[in-house]
């Protein structure tokens, strides 16, 4: 008990002196994670559209060559950025560019952080979207083609909206991983939540209480995000029931109707 009340004291002391730093750190973390995940999704969806362009044997050779190159580039992108640690990717981009082109070419720290996390997430999302597209019944594509849609329209109107619905759990995974893993951006000096911890610990010599604060803040952010994603998922599913669009009141007694607003029901019986 003694140690626990001691801990609570230390935590509140740390908080009262540096709560602004923690909040700013948390804000930077969540902003980086959310925006980079969103950009990553866009990259992933774009890769999904490009990867699934059908190429057939009797297409002209130029088109087939271009498609081959596009697929190769996406493949290499995915393998390289999924297959190397994000922390090293940050080093390569932030320190590698000035190494070759001089200090003038050094990227802004914030921009570099957003860039690295976005590209990294995009590599994962490209595979997630590919899996999502494969999970959609081929009949949906055929239905779209049969009314004359080209590949792009088929994808944007029919396939991707359904894909997005199906991959939300995976988008959530990526978002939560990003909230936690953006901490590696300290390597290029980006001061998000974990960097705040290191700074405060260095100044005040209280290690564990600050870690407790960090834990609680990370958990809060991830839980809130997953609740919001669930909510979005439900919203995309649309309402469970539908209203019969007719003035014929007998239609409502057909048993097909599952939901009538209460006042409407009274109207009918009047």
């Amino acid at each position: 008990m003694d140690r626990i009340s001691q801990l609570l004291n230390d935590v509140s002391a740390t908080l009262s002196s540096s709560y602004m730093q923690y909040l700013v750190g948390a804000g930077k973390t969540i902003l980086l994670a959310v925006i980079a995940t969103a950009v990553g999704c866009i990259i992933g969806l774009a890769c999904g559209i490009l990867q699934t362009i059908p190429s057939e044997k009797d297409d002209n050779p130029v088109k087939r060559a271009v498609l081959f190159v596009i697929r190769a580039i996406i493949r290499i992108y995915v393998e390289v950025f999924r297959g190397t640690p994000m922390i090293l990717q940050a080093v390569f981009i932030y320190f590698g560019i000035p190494y070759f082109f001089g200090n003038g070419a050094r990227l802004d720290i914030t921009f570099a952080a957003y860039l690295v996390v976005s590209i990294n997430t995009g590599a994962y999302m490209a595979e997630t979207v590919r899996g999502g597209i494969l999970s959609i019944d081929p009949g949906q594509t055929e239905g779209a083609k049969a009314i004359g849609m080209n590949h792009f329209k088929t994808m944007t109107s029919v396939i991707l909206p359904q894909t997005i619905r199906n991959i939300i759990p995976q988008i959530g995974n990526n978002l939560i991983i990003n909230i936690k893993d953006t901490s590696v951006m300290f390597i290029i000096g980006y001061t998000e939540l974990f960097a705040v911890h290191k700074a405060i610990v260095g100044a005040k010599f209280i290690y564990f209480p600050s870690a407790v604060i960090e834990m609680a803040m990370y958990l809060c952010m991830t839980v809130i995000c997953s609740v919001l994603l669930r909510f979005w998922e439900k919203k995309l599913d649309g309402p469970q029931n539908f209203d019969i669009a007719t003035t014929d009141t007998l239609a409502l007694t057909s048993g097909m109707n599952t939901y009538i607003k209460k006042n409407k029901r009274e109207d009918i019986h009047r």
């Binding site: 019944d137 009949g139 949906q140 055929e142 239905g143 779209a144 083609k145 049969a146 009314i147 004359g148 849609m149 080209n150 109107s157 029919v158 909206p161 359904q162 619905r165 539908f242």
Partner: peptide, 28 residues
């Protein structure tokens, strides 16, 4: 695609767009 707009198709398994309402299916 241009040719298919002239030749409608009805499938055994319907292939309605699951993400759209009935009306939207017929409008898109």
């Amino acid at each position: 695609p241009a040719y298919r707009t002239k030749v409608g198709m009805v499938f055994q398994s319907f292939n309605l767009f699951n993400n759209m309402t009935v009306l939207k299916n017929c409008m898109v």
